[in-house]
Simulated scan of single mutants.
Amino acid sequence: MFKPFSKIIAAAFALLILAGCSENSEPQEGTQFQKLPVELTEFNLAPITEVFSLNCGHCRTMENNIPEIESLTNQKVGKVHVTFNESAQISAMIFYTAVMQLNDNPNHEFMEDLFAAVQMGGDVTPEQRQSALETAFTSRGLVSPYQLNKEQQIALFQYIEKAQEISVKGQINSVPAFIINGKYQILTAGHQDINGIAETINYLLAK
């Protein structure tokens, strides 16, 4: 007598489970991503742009995952350095000194050298930190931030001003963050791993 009813209940639960899976199969706004308050398309950012700081330990960890994100999305990740405060502004000058000479972002090995120099422990002297930074540049045939001429300094500040405008307009308040198509920000806390972040990025790239 109760057997047909139990089958109906079981079937109903199965449908609910399937419905739940289908509803959560794609990234959710407010959980995995959010719209930027102002679109940043005017800045011609790369489709995937990481907003970061050389001072940020989490950004240094994320840097190790950038090659995997690029592989999973078939896109090169662009970069914007924040200028939240004085220390971030100084680090931005270091980063953009490399960018303006390379006319590109530093590669992974160069980035790791920059992170390592900026994030040297508090027991090092200013001279030791400067030496590490200068070596990161001169070993690659580049002029260090300490040796820029007047023309290079002017060009550098143009990079800094643009980065600051992007950060302010996009209201980027924490790093690392990823901007997609100049319209969306990935919420990294809403993901369990890099694969999940890549899935959300691919979803937004297709929107």
Rank of each mutant, 00 (worst) to 15 (best):
M62H: 13
Y203A: 00
A12P: 13
M111A: 06
S174I: 11
T97G: 10
K162C: 10
L18A: 10
A116R: 07
E86W: 09
V51T: 07
A19V: 13
A198Y: 00
Q75F: 08
F52S: 12
E151N: 15
S22Q: 15
I197Y: 02
A136Y: 03
I48N: 01
Q185D: 03
K35G: 11
K35M: 13
Q158W: 14
S131H: 14
A136L: 05
N149S: 06
N173L: 12
E23A: 13
I48F: 02
R129H: 08
E42P: 11
I17A: 11
I48A: 03
T200Q: 01
A136T: 04
T41L: 06
F5E: 12
Q119G: 01
I186N: 03
N55I: 11
I8P: 06
I8F: 14
N149M: 05
K150F: 14
S131W: 13
N55Y: 14
L36E: 00
A155Q: 15
T41W: 05
A206F: 14
I154C: 09
Q34N: 12
Q32L: 03
N74T: 09
K35N: 15
Y146C: 14
V175L: 02
H58G: 07
S139Q: 11
E68H: 12
N24C: 11
P47V: 04
E161M: 12
M111L: 13
R60I: 13
A117G: 01
A136N: 05
L45N: 02
N85P: 10
I197K: 04
L142C: 05
A206I: 06
Y146W: 11
G196L: 03
S131M: 12
L36G: 00
N85G: 14
C59E: 02
N103S: 13
A155T: 15
I180Y: 03
E70G: 04
A177Y: 04
A10Y: 14
N55D: 09
A10C: 08
E199L: 08
E151L: 11
A92E: 04
K3V: 11
Q153R: 14
M111Y: 07
I94A: 08
Q128T: 09
L142N: 01
Y159S: 12
H108I: 15
Q130V: 10
Q28V: 12
G30A: 00
N105V: 08
E127M: 07
N85D: 07
F115W: 01
L156N: 02
E39R: 12
Q75V: 09
A46I: 07
F2E: 12
L187P: 03
A116I: 13
N202M: 04
M111K: 06
R60Q: 12
I90K: 12
F137V: 00
A198S: 15
T97Q: 05
M111P: 02
A177P: 06
F178R: 04
N107V: 05
K183C: 08
I160S: 06
I180T: 04
F52K: 05
E109M: 06
E39W: 09
E161W: 09
L16A: 15
Y96E: 10
V118Q: 10
P47L: 03
Q171G: 08
